[in-house]
Design a protein around this nucleic acid. Sequence first.
DNA 1: CATTAGATTTCGGCA
DNA 2: TGCCGAAGTCTAATG
Lengths: 251, 251
Amino acid sequence: MIIKLDENPGTEEVFDFINEAISKRAFIIIVACCRIKYRGRATSRLGSGDRTIIIKTDGSFLVHQDYNLEPVNWQPPNCKFKTRMENDRVYICGVRRNPPESLEVEICKTHMISYHIGKDIKKLELAGYEEDLRTMIMESPELIEKGFRPTSKEYQVSTGFIDILGKDKNGSLMILELKSRQAGVNAVKQLKKYFEDFTDHKDFVRGLLVAPSVTEDAQELLEKYQLEFKALEPPKELKSAKSVTLDFFNK
Amino acid sequence: MIIKLDENPGTEEVFDFINEAISKRAFIIIVACCRIKYRGRATSRLGSGDRTIIIKTDGSFLVHQDYNLEPVNWQPPNCKFKTRMENDRVYICGVRRNPPESLEVEICKTHMISYHIGKDIKKLELAGYEEDLRTMIMESPELIEKGFRPTSKEYQVSTGFIDILGKDKNGSLMILELKSRQAGVNAVKQLKKYFEDFTDHKDFVRGLLVAPSVTEDAQELLEKYQLEFKALEPPKELKSAKSVTLDFFNK
DNA sequence: CATTAGATTTCGGCA
DNA sequence: TGCCGAAGTCTAATG
């Protein structure tokens, strides 16, 4: 781990520090009083105040105020940086094409500056989203109801893709709309839309919303449209945890 | 500005540092080798590596890898922190209720740690989103076309809200769907949906998509549905800039 | 490279 | 507090 840091550096020091860090493709952290201008997909301005500025090795550019999870201003990866000094201030400008946009930070006073080059090869393992729910249902259709047989997933109809299509124990067509989180009215409307794509069918068709829960409004809409709901959570077990468990039982 | 920082601190030092910073509601930045577990809306795990950990004064909790704009793990504002020391490691656990979720960072080796309490009262001024476009059209309807008169905004129909409803110079009803950026097929489908809500009307109705541009697919869909398109960008002028301009001209 | 759909979306606004 | 909808959404996957 290479690391360099400085407390209350002067303007020129900051300027050199940033240029050195950018040329080394280091991870830069600056705590400074600054002003910010953004122009691109929208236009924004932020007056003078203490912020935390981050430049990542992939060219991501973030400015954080001391509240909110989200950065107040930012630039996605691969933006190009230009720095300059003017009137005892350092300017960092991050420019991106497609869409064309630029973010300029004017640093008035730097409290702390650091850069580091670390090691991190690990990727996040994540479970518990819609795809996991779909996989679980395809593997264990009885979770929906006894006799349910999925016939296809991501079935294309004129208005979009039906998450899972299948038949119940009586052979009736079932349209499943999946949500990994509490479903709102929009989920019901979407299901209704797919449902209507099959109204030309003579046979009885069922529309089923599958989600951990529904909002009250969505519940009412389901009843109005004669659609059904099945409470089901996406599995939240990590693959690595699963294989560990399997190994454990295989011993 | 109060600031405190330390390079390559020991485990106990880090533990005390963090506790002190949390009790002071300071903005904390840690660069450390760590492992991470998240459990709540989903489940995730991240193996050992160098990351940048941030705790904001509002209880936001972020862990950044050295690439991507988004944090690899996080906790939104107002999470409660618990720290502990175990086997020469510091654990920071951020817990939130509603939804119940927790994020735990296990710090193996700290490269840099800092906290600061700064001053920042400024709020972001932003212009160029859908509301600006709507306001502009309501104020200058002729931008849509000569003779256009808006009658209502956010008009409720069974399937949602129509952005702007109005009449053209011939008195025909016009349904406007606004997008602040390039419109895709979904925007056209939405407009179609609203359009169909008025098909019971005997009179001629026009559906108009208003956006800076459309994708090719969306363009085809517009033609297929006999809907129209008007290229219009949301104004990107800041209010402060506007009033400055007015002041300038009023002098 | 453009387009699309999901997200631990976040966030603000309104009931 | 819960729900809805926009966002400079971002991001990965797909054609």
